[in-house]
Simulated scan of single mutants.
Amino acid sequence: MTDPERRDEEQEMPQAVDPHATRPLSKAEKEVLRRIDPGSRALVIAAVMLVLVLCSLLPWVGDAAGWQVLTGTADPSLNVGLLPQLFAINSTVVGIGLGVLSLMTRRWGVAFLAAVGGVVVTFEGMVAIWSRQTSGITGPSFGLVLAVVCMAVLAVQWMRVVWTRR
């Protein structure tokens, strides 16, 4: 056989299976698979979480600040309703709570919860804005809109971190 024929034959033959490839994963390997490395996205996520915290100082409904909507101490004449308050609670729990927990533990599962929760809470925030626009009393203020934008950015960033899983 000539050299070119031998090369063609070698390429057609299936490669042998590495015996180490089928062995069970060790604890260290499993631990590595559970971890995430957000890289430079961690800085973006932390900055957006800070803006989300600052949104609680801005007006959300009429003159009521985000923290007043969160705690339920807004002026009763504003008739804030359930949806903005639900968004305030969930954006705090998911956007800040799960976000901080994900950055501290670097666990894939917690980051996945932050990503999926961020998508759900973003939708919830859009419904809260819609409910304020259709209430006929007072519409949403810029703090609520900015908080929804922050949650959307957080959801996208966490999805990218979870999807890449470096």
Results as ranks from 00 to 15, higher is better:
Thr2Glu: 13
Asp3Gly: 06
Asp8Leu: 14
Glu9Thr: 05
Glu9Val: 06
Glu9Pro: 02
Glu10Ser: 07
Gln11His: 13
Met13Val: 10
Pro14Trp: 09
Ala16Gly: 06
Ala16His: 12
Asp18Lys: 12
Pro19Met: 07
Ala21Ser: 14
Pro24Phe: 03
Ser26Asn: 12
Lys27Cys: 00
Glu29Ala: 15
Glu29Met: 13
Leu33His: 00
Arg34Lys: 14
Ile36Gln: 02
Asp37Arg: 12
Gly39Ala: 14
Gly39Asn: 13
Arg41Trp: 06
Ala42Lys: 06
Ala42Asn: 00
Ile45Ala: 14
Leu50Trp: 08
Leu50His: 07
Val51Pro: 09
Leu52Val: 00
Leu54Lys: 05
Ser56Trp: 12
Ser56Glu: 10
Leu58Ile: 08
Leu58Gln: 07
Asp63Leu: 11
Ala64Asn: 09
Gly66Arg: 02
Gly66Glu: 01
Gln68His: 07
Leu70Ala: 11
Thr71Arg: 10
Gly72Glu: 06
Asp75Phe: 05
Pro76Gly: 00
Pro84Glu: 11
Val94Ile: 15
Gly97Asp: 04
Leu98Lys: 04
Thr105Cys: 00
Arg106Tyr: 01
Arg107Cys: 01
Val110Tyr: 09
Leu113Val: 01
Val116Asn: 02
Gly118Ser: 03
Val119Asp: 06
Thr122Gly: 04
Met126Val: 09
Ala128Val: 00
Trp130Gln: 12
Trp130Ala: 12
Trp130Asp: 12
Ser135Val: 01
Thr138Lys: 08
Phe142Leu: 11
Leu144Trp: 05
Val148Tyr: 04
Val148Arg: 07
Val149Phe: 14
Met151Phe: 05
Leu154Val: 11
Trp158Met: 10
Trp158Asp: 04
Trp158Asn: 09
Met159Glu: 13
Arg160Trp: 06
Arg160Asp: 13
Val162Trp: 01
Trp163Cys: 03
Arg165Ser: 00
Arg166Gln: 06
